[in-house]
């Protein structure tokens, strides 16, 4: 888990930068993308080990980003974040290949635990 390369994708800058800082405090390498296009570019340039992806985003939506990531990197684990609290969205995401989904507001311990599970299941 040490030095795990994480990509955080969310349009809510305040949220995502703070989250990145907290993860770095825990010794993880978190980078931030504020929209789907930026995220996809960053994945192409330097593929992370795990992606944390918000579903609701302007421009290319979360599901579309997920679909493209899975097309290029089927082995890259993706954990979805949803603000709507909808199981339906989560289930749809998992059908598209997401490892799991979490609801906002996040519990950081829960997020780290999920990432651990994801890494372990994607050797």
């Amino acid at each position: 888990m040490e030095n795990l390369k994480i990509l955080l994708v969310d349009d809510e800058e305040e949220f995502v930068t703070t989250l990145a800082e907290r993860l770095e405090l825990r010794g993880l390498q978190a980078r931030v993308a504020l929209n789907g296009e930026a995220a996809l570019k960053m994945i192409e340039a330097d593929t992370p080990e795990i992606v944390i992806l918000d579903v609701m985003m302007p421009g290319i939506g979360g599901f579309e980003v997920l679909r493209r990531i899975k097309a290029q990197h089927p082995q890259l684990p993706v954990i979805l974040l949803t603000g709507r609290g909808s199981e339906k969205e989560g289930v749809k995401g998992m059908q598209l290949g997401a490892f799991d989904y979490l609801m906002k507001p996040l519990n950081i311990e829960e997020l780290i635990k999920k990432m651990q599970e994801a890494i372990e299941s994607h050797p």
């Binding site: 809510e12 907290r22 603000g83 609290g85 507001p105 950081i108």
Partner: peptide
């Protein structure tokens, strides 16, 4: 939910 998530992260 969104501001709440920010508060959560900032407080965290």
């Amino acid at each position: 939910n969104n501001p709440m998530a920010i508060i959560n992260e900032k407080a965290g």
